[in-house]
Each structure stands twice: as structure tokens, then as C-alpha cells.
Simulated assay, not measured.
Amino acid sequence: MPIIDIESNLGEELDLQAFAHRMDQEGVALIAFSGIARGRGWSDAARYAVAADPWRYIPAGDGGLPPDWKRNPTGFAKVSKERIISDGYPMMGEYEFRHYPSPDQIQRGNMERDEYLPIDSPAGHQLFQFSEESGISFQIHQEIEDQYLPQLEKMLAQYPKAKVIWCHLAQMRYQARNTVYGPDYVRKLIEQYPNLYFDLFSGPPDHIYPGSKEYPGKYWDRTTGKLKPEWAKLIADHPWRFMTALDLNPFIMQEFSRKVGMQRAVLDSLPVPVREIVAYKAAWKLLFNEEI
């Protein structure tokens, strides 16, 4: 079954020809390629990839990543809006509001990416308002913790037509900081906010986040290697609100096959009639307003 990866930062040094073979081997039909500005204000990396191989990449705007987003979030949000409009991107990238260092960064000794920008900050309002006015979706990285949920719900209520993809369903890096989020809470959000979506990226069931020494992938049944029944039922009940994602970045490209395998384990946990929706149909409909 083909899958669409709704969220990855592949980097500019990617060997597109070699990677095309890997995509074919793993059945990855399309990747939403998001560039990394790296202090330049904007990268155009996604446009270059699409120009080189238009059958494999969906161009996404540069994500809200350091240093540009951290240094000047309102300025970067303004540039994002301008470039999305002028260059015709079908989606924005992933904007980091609360983000802990990723496992590969901790392994490299890089602890600087412990970031917090309130989602109801001026930059957050710019993104939500632009999405509501344009119909173009954007992604958020918001760690799952009690203290940040009211801010997010406030923004979803204020901008009900904004198309928001909350990245990494059920990834909780510090479990003690969450007492609210679970399948019932996500179901409530889906039913209350019709333009809220989720990507399904997670590490494998046995992955331990080095910062907390905890298992962050809370939807896994670590005994079976599949989704817990309550999470599988939630996705099966609302399949058009969930999309596969690989969350690739230049430092972990060697993990490509393993990441695809984890998303296929998610799909295998779902009823057969909804697997194609989650694998690629939901992403296509969200981005292009077409059913395939």
C-alpha cells in the first residue's frame, strides 16, 4: 500500500536519485518536503526537490525551526505567509511552539533545542489567521502537557477554519506532565474542532526518550508491537483526521526503513477499510481538496 509522508525535513544534500530508489522499495509514494532556513530567512529547498523530481515530493514551506523561528518568530511567520502565497505552496511546514531536544540531538550533545513559544503569541496568531483565510494547512509541534492544552484550544476556537496538523499523536516525552491527554480527550478535540488533524509519527514501541528515560510512544502496545485498541478505535472512527508521517531530518536518514516500518505497523493495527484513508487519501484530500 502506498503511503504519503505528511511531515519531513530532508535537507539540501540529499541524493535524490538514490533516495528515489529507497522510496520505491518502501512504497512511499510522496513526501511533503519542508526546507530548513538555517539563518537565511528562507531556503527554497522544497522547490528545488520538486523541480528535480516532481513525482515524489509535495512542497511544504520552511518549518518554524531554529535559528530563524526562535530569533524572530513574527518576522519568520510574515516571510512564511509571503512565500507561501507567491510561490504557491500547498502547505506550510512544522512550527515549533514547545519542543524538547530530539533523541538524535541529545546523542550529539546538543541540548539547545529546549524551546517554548506560546501558541497564542503574535506569531501563532499570524499563522492561525493566515491558515483560516487561505485554507492552507500548517503543522505544529506542541509537546503534550497539561499546561499547554488550554492555549491550543483557545486558538482552535478563535480560528475555527484554520487547518492545523498537530504532529506526533500520543508522543509524551514526560508522562508526569500530562494527566488529561488520551484517546477520549483527542476524540473530544476532533468532534469539537473540525479542522484539527494529527500525524501518526512515533518511534518504535521499545524506544526510550533519553531525556526522561521513558517510553514516549503512548499509543503502542509494547507486547504486540501494534496500536493499543483504544487508539486504533479512535483512528478508525475518524480516519480522515489522521495521516502517516516519517518525521525525517538530515541526521536520521539512515532510519528511513525503520520509520516506514513503524507507520506500517500503525496501519496494520487498523481495520482494512480505513487503512488506505490514513495511508494516503486523508493527506491528499486535506492538501488538494480531492478524494482519490
Rank of each mutant, 00 (worst) to 15 (best):
G124W: 03
A45F: 14
H168S: 09
E133Y: 03
Y148Q: 06
S43K: 08
Q126P: 03
K78G: 13
V272C: 01
P229D: 03
L169H: 11
E214W: 07
R264T: 04
Y100A: 00
A123P: 12
P204A: 03
W42M: 05
Q129V: 02
R47A: 12
L270F: 04
G75I: 06
Y197R: 05
I277M: 14
P2D: 10
Q192C: 05
P210N: 02
E26Y: 00
A51F: 09
V278S: 06
I165V: 15
I144Y: 06
H125C: 01
I252E: 02
Q105L: 15
C167V: 11
L286I: 13
Y89K: 08
D53F: 15
Q107F: 12
W69F: 12
S134H: 08
L127S: 06
M23A: 10
G182W: 12
W55G: 14
G63R: 07
G35A: 12
Y181I: 11
G88P: 00
P101W: 01
A162H: 09
L65D: 02
G11T: 13
E7C: 15
W42H: 11
F128Q: 03
G261C: 11
R177P: 10
E82Y: 04
I58K: 02
M92Y: 00
K259V: 05
L234P: 00
W166K: 07
A45E: 12
W55K: 11
A18C: 07
R47P: 06
F288E: 12
R113K: 14
L156Y: 14
A18N: 03
L156D: 08
S137A: 15
L200T: 05
L10V: 13
Y209G: 02
K226T: 00
S80I: 05
D206T: 09
P90I: 13
L117G: 07
W220P: 11
V260C: 00
K285Q: 06
L189G: 05
E96N: 15
L169P: 05
T223L: 04
I6Y: 01
I6F: 01
L169E: 07
Q107C: 12
G225L: 12
S134F: 13
N249V: 08
L16I: 15
E230R: 01
T179E: 00
W69D: 06
P183K: 11
K163D: 07
R173W: 13
R71P: 00
A46K: 03
L10C: 13
A232Q: 01
A18E: 10
M155F: 09
H141A: 01
I165T: 02
I190C: 14
W284V: 02
I235E: 09
D53T: 14
M155G: 09
H125S: 06
P160F: 14
G93V: 14
R40C: 10
E255D: 12
V186E: 12
